[in-house]
Design a protein around this nucleic acid. Structure first.
Length: 215
DNA sequence: GCGACAG
DNA sequence: ATCTTGTCGC
């Protein structure tokens, strides 16, 4: 296995090297539950203003009350490339999370987990780096096709179930150390009116406020 | 070659 | 993601 220091050095990776890293790390992802109950939820998101980025991590309790907020500002290092979002957003997200003093049970990332061309979206990367239960939540379908299975909208890719459209434009997938069903239940429990789960929504709003926008 | 493409 | 006014609908 590679050393963690190498996994964290995304700065100088070429696209080919990044893809190779994804293929290698994809086998490290666990889709098994490691917890039986979840009390504290952390949501992360990144907002931009030209070359400036601000990542925000928010911890909420079961009642949606904010326990802690951590912000991290930096300069954009990579352009956005579909399938390689982690190069651009994982470093700032990890730094924001690193600034948290409190611990949390599960992380919700704005972006896909296994719902990805190589079964390794940004939520998988962050989950493995932190070695924590992580869920990917996206608002658009990156790949695969939605198939209706007994009332549910399952996302299929190459014959595999890689995620589910829990609400309109809300795609959930496994990041790490959690099962898809548990991830879906957690997202459903944290959403209001079919929106993006509360912790991510809060992080999104705070990140934009930090850039002087209205929320 | 053409279209699609998380944020 | 970000740039942006009014407008349609619940």
């Amino acid at each position: 296995m590679r050393e963690m220091a190498h996994l964290l050095n995304l700065e100088s990776l070429t696209y080919d090297e990044a893809i190779k890293l994804q293929l290698e790390m994809a086998s490290m992802v666990s889709e098994h539950d490691v917890l039986e109950s979840y009390e504290l939820f952390c949501g992360v998101d990144v907002a931009y203003s030209n070359q400036n980025a601000v990542a925000v991590a928010v911890i909420q309790d079961k009642d949606g009350r904010i326990v802690e907020v951590s912000k991290h500002k930096c300069i954009v290092r990579h352009v956005y490339v579909p399938g390689l979002l982690f190069l651009r957003e994982a470093p700032p997200m990890l730094n924001a999370i690193k600034g948290l003093k409190s611990d949390f049970d599960v992380l919700l990332v704005d972006g896909n987990g296994r719902l990805h061309p190589r079964k390794f979206g940004i939520a998988c990367y962050i989950g493995i780096v932190l070695d924590k239960p992580t869920i990917g939540v996206a608002k658009k379908l990156l790949c695969g096709q939605v198939k209706r299975v007994s009332g549910r909208r399952v996302v299929m890719l190459n014959g595999d179930v890689v995620g589910e459209e829990v609400f309109k434009n809300v795609y959930v997938s496994v990041g790490h150390k959690i099962s898809l069903n548990t991830a879906i239940e957690i997202v459903k429990g944290l959403t209001k009116n079919g929106q993006i789960p509360s912790p991510i929504l809060a992080a999104h709003k705070i990140a934009n406020e930090e850039l002087g926008r209205r929320g």
